[in-house]
Nucleic acid binder design. Structure first.
Lengths: 204, 204
DNA sequence: CGGTGTTTCTACCGCATGGTAGAAAATCTG
DNA sequence: CAGATTTTCTACCATGCGGTAGAAACACCG
């Protein structure tokens, strides 16, 4: 008995080459579809069609449509975190916060599909979250502000939590504006935001 | 012939009492539904059920489900614009921009359902826009910044368009944070944002 | 009370959705 | 080449969607 001993439980080792390739392809086309038609307009059938497959084939590689979208979202976040994280860790004090602002804006300008993906995922409450134990974006940025405070770059009375909310909001607005108006110079906007933070928060 | 001379074209005068009451009720329940379940999760059947009606009855009062949502959105925007507009016009120069920030945050804290409604409508691209000739939010705020510049409150080298993007982003972030964390003091955050703008943009 | 116009209901339609069953290709392994 | 395993396909299903038809309540006006 035990009729299903062949397909070993899933999550067993090797992960075929085609498997990897298909997963990557599906993540790619899903990201593009979300970028073009929004989250709600991205159906399983569309994903399958864009990949040149049938719906069933897609669901062979992922347990559900939501899993595909979640994987695409995770990939976008991973790329973002990798680049921004590196930029931030290469600096310290107020420079680290400036690096955060500039590298985040730059990354999402270079990868607008990821921008749409991330924005849409945030808007929906699909519970498509990161690990819930991970620090929130606000908390991470608040830590940067606090670091800038402790190095003496920023005044001691700056509220890190509040500053983090404002900074993230401004960054998101820059990214959104860039998405809506390609002529918008988001790099300059990021510089402007950094200058604004300097003027307001620096010790003088 | 002309079988339909009774129901005179629509948009004829009086608009019955029940009509008004039903429309208002439908807008109310739709706003609440969008606030609770998001735009995508607000179906015609749900709206009807929440109003204690059948789907057909809802579509008797509105030509389509989208029309209901659009009406609810328009109502939220109208209330917002009325309050914020009044607050802004009661001040001038940099004070007008401060009034914009404070009154917008205050209004959406007092009416969180409207906040969700507006956020969702923005996120979706349902073409549920205002009149397309109306100035965009960014343009309106840019005008406020320019006014503050021309009164001499703000430095002449402040870029109104860029400042508008940053201010709106920060305001939205404050509203969103308030929505996510009821303990968040959005009033204080608004004050903080105003102070930040003063420190950065004021002539000194 | 009778008639007229309103508001609402039940029952349906067509469609798109996410997902499944089972068989057919394609591919790898010996 | 033969057998097993993978990948993919063609149906199909149930569900929820927005919307419509036509008849029943309902309210008002003479």
């Amino acid at each position: 008995m035990t009729p299903d001993a062949t397909r070993r439980d899933r999550a067993d080792r090797p992960l075929t080459l085609t498997e990897q390739a298909r997963r990557a392809q599906l993540i790619r086309v899903t990201t593009d579809l979300v970028a073009r038609h929004g989250y709600a307009g991205t159906s399983l059938a569309r994903i399958a069609e864009a990949a040149g497959l049938s719906k069933a084939a897609v669901l062979y590689h992922f347990p559900s449509k939501d899993a595909v979208v979640r994987a695409a979202y995770a990939a976008a976040i991973e790329a973002l975190v990798a680049e921004v994280g590196a930029a931030v860790e290469a600096a310290s004090g107020a420079d680290a916060l400036a690096a955060y602002v500039r590298s985040l804006v730059a990354h999402l300008r270079a990868h607008p599909e990821h921008a749409r993906m991330i924005v849409e995922a945030i808007a929906e409450e699909t519970g498509v979250t990161d690990r819930p134990d991970a620090p929130s974006r606000r908390q991470s940025v608040a830590a940067l502000v606090e670091a800038a405070r402790s190095t003496g770059d920023y005044r001691p009375d700056v509220d890190p939590d509040l500053a983090a909310v404002l900074v993230n909001g401004a960054v998101d607005a820059i990214v959104a504006e860039q998405l809506a108006r390609p002529d918008f110079d988001s790099g300059r906007a990021a510089d402007e935001l950094v200058e604004l933070l300097d003027r307001s928060y620096r010790r003088r």
